[in-house]
């Protein structure tokens, strides 16, 4: 279509140039154009948090961001964060604590929790609940997730 444009986006440290239609969401772009399917789509109206990615270092809803808007910007997804190892401690604790069931919300939860711990080294349970209050998990009832984030924070403090 004539309104398609070329964009260059840095995703997980790698430059991608693609020809996209403006109406394609960042979520659909990274999932279907780039094949990074770890980012999930749960509602497409910005409520569930399953599609959270990092845009220029800050978490955003990729369903409420257009792919064309990210031209010249940097995106990080769960795949990038996993590969770099920067949240491997949290992933390990989520695994051990069973802080996920179906796993559909998990990438969004991990990215959101990671930002919380960047901002607040030792959040209390209420702060963790507050910060994660925009991420829907239909399976766990949240307690295990709160436990796992709390423990990650504690271990990071102890490790210092």
């Amino acid at each position: 279509m004539s309104n398609k444009t070329d964009i260059s986006v840095n995703v997980n440290g790698r430059e991608y140039t693609r020809h996209v239609s403006p109406r394609v969401s960042l979520a659909d772009f990274i999932r279907h154009d780039l094949g990074l399917t770890g980012t999930h789509v749960g509602c497409e109206h910005g409520v569930c948090g399953a599609c959270v990615v990092k845009l220029d270092g800050k978490i955003v809803r990729s369903c409420l961001t257009l792919a064309v808007q990210t031209d010249g910007h940097a995106i990080e997804t769960i795949e990038g964060l996993s590969e770099s190892g920067e949240i491997s401690d949290m992933q390990e604790i989520f695994h051990k604590r069973n802080a996920l069931q179906c796993g559909y919300c998990t990438p969004g939860i991990l990215l959101t929790a990671a930002e919380l711990l960047e901002k607040t080294a030792t959040p209390d349970r209420e702060e963790i609940r507050e910060f994660l209050s925009g991420n829907l998990c239909r399976c766990t009832g949240y307690e295990a997730i709160i436990d796992a984030v709390e423990e990650t924070a504690r271990e990071r403090q102890d490790g210092k």
Binding site: G49, L55, K58, V60, T112, E115
Partner: peptide, 9 residues
């Protein structure tokens, strides 16, 4: 106002 990821944007 809303939630963290929304407030960032």
């Amino acid at each position: 106002v809303a939630h963290a990821a929304i407030r960032n944007r």
